[in-house]
């Protein structure tokens, strides 16, 4: 699993990346009450808007960690947005992206680097 400074995580399987928000991000956001996800087929750019996760108080943008095409969105979240809090780095995944260039992963942080980054916040 790799991480961004915007608190997204990515897990790559072949050329398909599963993306979500980190446990830290979910904790900071609080109870998630609404998740807006892109439709399959949508092209996303690394660092560009991908999804919106909302708590009672605020809406937070989620950026695409990698460029590619969305192949699936987690349908469970429309009925149970709280799943993002229950399993942010597992069942609360947001989208799957068919990645144009898997080597993009190398630019992202590994867990040790992400945790070191959290320590600076």
């Amino acid at each position: 699993m790799r991480f961004t400074k915007d608190h997204e995580w990515v897990e790559l399987d072949g050329d398909t990346a599963t993306v979500g928000i980190t446990a830290y991000a979910a904790e900071q956001l609080g109870d998630v009450v609404f998740v807006e996800l892109p439709a399959p087929g949508k092209k996303v750019e690394a660092g560009g808007d991908m999804a919106v996760v909302e708590s009672v108080k605020a809406a937070s943008d989620v950026y695409a960690p990698l460029s590619g095409e969305v192949t699936a969105a987690n349908g469970e979240l429309s009925d149970n947005p709280q799943t993002v809090n229950d399993g942010p780095e597992s069942s609360g995944w947001l989208v799957k992206i068919k990645v144009a260039d898997p080597s993009q992963m190398e630019k992202l942080m590994d867990r040790a680097a992400y945790e070191a980054f959290l320590g600076t916040l």
């Binding site: 609080g30 109870d31 009450v33 708590s55 009672v56 108080k57």
Partner: peptide
């Protein structure tokens, strides 16, 4: 304080 440990939803 904007929220305590339980969070906005539970505090509400």
């Amino acid at each position: 304080p904007v929220q305590y440990a339980p969070g906005v939803l539970k505090e509400h």
